[in-house]
Design a protein around this nucleic acid. Structure first.
Lengths: 112, 112
DNA sequence: GAAGCCAATGCCATACAAAGAAAAAGAAAT
DNA sequence: ATTTCTTTTTCTTTGTATGGCATTGGCTTC
């Protein structure tokens, strides 16, 4: 098994990685984590958040609703509750892109 | 000609009438009048607003977006400016979302 | 020492609401 | 009818509570 494959299969991302990925502030991600049930990272023994691709998708979605579509937090919450199936539909397609995203992110990390 | 018809043919409504009709308070209607171009009542010599049914519909729409759908003022404005079908179309939305992710990915790549 | 945690506080824009003035609309008296 | 008084409706401007983060501080872990 090649080394690279192992990295691509990475399951969890730290808040800093997610913040860099989506160009958001970490504090904002923590805030949204409190506000939205669909963002539910695991936590390790130290309490650090561990985000899955699903969490990242959820954050990207929230970001879209709030910063591009112009919803309030509560409007976005309501919107997400009303159309959960739509969000699931996108998951499969989004995974392909997220896989690519992961690769690029690893490239960035190696460069540093 | 029955009496009632005369009322139905009324062209202009005062802010108080509109407020009662939509169960909003007048100050809120004045505020939205400033914020939204689609609300454009005529004014008499004294500056009093004269609302047409079209204005009233526009106010009702704004009310729906803000108080029911959970948009901010600016989000509602944006929504009204673009074609609403596109916004409601789930497939379009999914595509737009994926495009967004891709852009973010590319942006990340270019950044370093 | 860099990155993460939480809690508390600060801060600025948003989204109205209240204040105060002016005028229109009734009612009463002349 | 018209003057006077009162009440209601409207106006604009200014005030303010809340929302949505950002920052700071103190601490822990890697």
């Amino acid at each position: 098994m090649p080394y690279k494959e192992k990295e691509i299969e990475k399951l969890y991302y730290t808040i800093g990685e997610v913040a860099a990925m989506l160009k958001l502030n970490a504090s904002q991600i923590r805030f949204w984590d409190k506000q939205f049930e669909i963002i539910k990272p695991h936590k390790n023994k130290n309490g650090n958040r561990l985000f899955t691709t699903k969490d990242i998708e959820a954050i990207a979605k929230v970001n879209e609703l709030i910063n591009e579509k112009g919803f309030t937090i509560q409007g976005a919450r309501q919107y997400l509750e009303q159309s959960p199936e739509m969000f699931d539909d996108k998951r499969e397609q989004a995974i392909a892109y997220l896989r690519l995203l992961k690769e690029k992110l690893l490239g960035l990390k190696d460069a540093k």
